Structures are given as C-alpha cells and as structure tokens.
Amino acid sequence: MATVSNLSLIKQYDPTAKTAAATDPTSTKDMTQNFLKMLTAQLQNQDPMNPTDTASMTTQLAQLNMVDGINQMKSTMTSLLSQIQSSDFMNYSSSVGKYAMVAGKSMSFDGQTPINLGAQLANDVSSVLATITDANGNVVAQETLGAHSAGMVDFSWDGTDSNGQPVAAGKYNIALSALSTEGNTFTPDSYVASMVAAIGKDSNKNALLTLADGRAVAPTDIAQWIA
C-alpha cells in the first residue's frame, strides 16, 4: 500500500517571520524577570494556612537591583574614562615639537643642538658635578654646577669637550655626583630633554609620547616642558 505524506504539515522557512529575541540567563535583567515569575507563581500557589515568608526573596530581589545599578555605573564610568582619554590625547597632540624633560642618562647629540639637562636634588648641596661620557665610557666633559637648594637644577651641554672642541654626533651619557651641605656624597637623579616627535596610545589607550631620542614615555613621566 502506498503511503501518502501530508506536505502541508512540514514547516516552511519564512525569512519575514520574526524570531524570538535571544535571552541571556546570566544577565541581571533576565534574572530579575525570572525571579519575579517564580515569586508570583509561589504566591499564587501558597498554602493559605501557611503563607510563604517573602522577606528573604524580597531581599534577594533588592540585591539583584543593586548589582544591576553597579553594572550600569561601571558602564557609565567606562564611557566617561574613554571620553577623558580621548580629550587628553587631543590635548597632548599640541606638544609635538616641544621639548620634554624626562628622567634618563642617555643622550642623542645631533652634532649641533645643545641638550637641556636636569639634576633632581633631594637635599641642599654645596656642589654638583656633571660628567659626560661617550658610548665607550670615555670622559668627554665635566661641569661643576656649584651650590644649590633641593629641587630641580637645570643646565645644558653644548656638545663640546673639556677643551671646548665640538664632539661628533652620537650617543652620550651623563652621570651626576653631589656633595650635601652635611658633607655626604650622593647621586642625584639625572634628566634629559628631548623633542616630542609623535603622540600615540599604549595598550590601555592612554597617551604615549615618542621622543626624538627614541624613548616612549607617559605624560606623567615628564618633569618639565621646555620651549
């Protein structure tokens, strides 16, 4: 006997038909809706002689609403942080071409432009000695800065050696030694200025300044701006 199939019972794909919105059982909104459905069902089916105590369930609902509020606050703060970072990035773009003083010991001398330097003194000193060496560690020049109060001491190297002769372009280093007013010797932190060549962002989308000498520094690393 032949079998007759009822093709009309087979569901046909309709691209215009609306699909049910996907739900996320872990989201606070869906959890709250499911919680209310369960609470309503429990109240409808409770024993009139032994009514359900809804205090704990109401407390849980309040906690869910609190979590939802915290999530919304987090989203708002993330958006605000993104706007602040974008604004900072645009502001720092105007620093391209300016000189930033940043902690360091290595200098890139182009053969003609004097290099602005700094010594961060933790104490009052009776003298500070700055020593310039080449890439091989040979002493090129020394300069005595004299007595200074605690703080940043600005000075510069004009690219000449101890005999006043110009040196070749290349990499040089600076070393500092200071004598405190109490007679103690210590090593101050040295700072080297370099022109800002470009502005970028780090992995956290914070502004990152690339200096002409190859260093990449955060804005918070800059001790001084030099015109």
Rank of each mutant, 00 (worst) to 15 (best):
D88V: 01
S93Y: 09
T28G: 06
V102E: 00
L145P: 02
T131G: 07
M1I: 07
D30H: 12
L209Q: 01
S108Y: 03
N204Q: 15
V67A: 10
Q42F: 11
D68R: 08
A198M: 13
K18H: 05
F89N: 04
M49H: 06
Y99W: 12
I226W: 00
A55L: 15
V217A: 07
N116H: 07
Q46R: 09
N163C: 05
K205F: 14
T52H: 12
Y99L: 11
T54P: 04
Q142E: 11
S162V: 14
T52G: 06
G104W: 00
S190G: 02
L117N: 01
T28W: 06
S86Y: 04
A100V: 02
P25Y: 05
T76K: 07
S95G: 04
L9P: 03
E143Q: 15
L179K: 07
N45F: 08
M73D: 10
F155V: 03
I174R: 00
F35S: 13
P219G: 05
K205C: 10
V128F: 01
A198G: 08
H148S: 06
Y172N: 06
L36Y: 10
S8H: 08
G97F: 03
V217E: 08
Y99E: 10
K11L: 10
T16M: 13
S5M: 15
T26R: 08
T210K: 12
G159H: 00
N34E: 13
A100P: 01
N173G: 11
L36K: 12
A20P: 01
T78R: 10
V4Q: 11
A55N: 14
T16I: 13
N34S: 15
L64D: 05
K11G: 09
L129K: 01
G118Q: 03
M57S: 12
Q60Y: 15
T185C: 06
T19A: 14
K29F: 14
I132P: 00
T54K: 05
A193T: 01
K29N: 14
Q165D: 15
T78I: 09
S86I: 04
A100F: 02
E182G: 06
S79D: 13
